[in-house]
Amino acid sequence: MSEKTVHMKITRQDGPFSDPYVEEFRVPWRPSMNIISALMEIRRNPININGEETSPVQWESICLEEVCGACSMLINGKPRQACSTLIDSLAQPITVEPLTSFPCERDLIVNRERMFDALKKVKGWIEIDGTQDMGPGPKIAENERQKAYELSKCMTCGLCFEACPNINQRSSFVGPAPLAQVRLFNTHPTGQMQAEERLEQIMGEGGLTSCGNAANCVEVCPKEIPLTQSIALLNKETTIYSFKRFFHK
């Protein structure tokens, strides 16, 4: 039986506080396989390369079409979405590791809470009704809508966090994606009403000014969010706002 196989080297971890270890697998190849289908194959038949039975590798995935952001991992050293990374496009053995910028929960599952906390910090939402219905909001111009749509595609996958040299244990940087989201909610006609509060949130320690313009974020973002452009525009807006705050407010 000389079937084609896929050789995977997976960095595993049994729990949040356990030590990581590498386990290798060889799974049967099928056409159009992606990383998730290879992981599913391991789950179906959890036998490692030495023929020993092991626990199935744990991972997260939801949409399987690169819109939910759950399946982020390091594939051959690069941060990518497992569901949209095709096996045939990769050199073997394929190394699969959890992201390093977030705490590992188990195997390939990481806890991206840091990103959701950042979104809360920057008020990454539109305030709509109060205690009563406030009626429809203002309309958005079509050209604004187009720009906003690009920003709204962010799926909080965290690849931009992973690639950023200014995100690590020592730094408190809020990160590229939440900054782009400030721009999204600040262009929304209703969201605009809290624009200054959002700017205020990113002007402190670990805010916008912690960006060092390494621009790795735009290189790795699977949704092609204009991150560096958003950061530059926020630089302009926060500067203008800082003068307004100092002289007028």
């Binding site: 690639a163 040299p165 912690s210 060092g212 790795n216």
Partner: peptide
């Protein structure tokens, strides 16, 4: 503040 990562991200 920076943890340089040029080896992985050669941009």
């Amino acid at each position: 503040d920076a943890k340089n990562n040029l080896t992985t991200y050669r941009y």
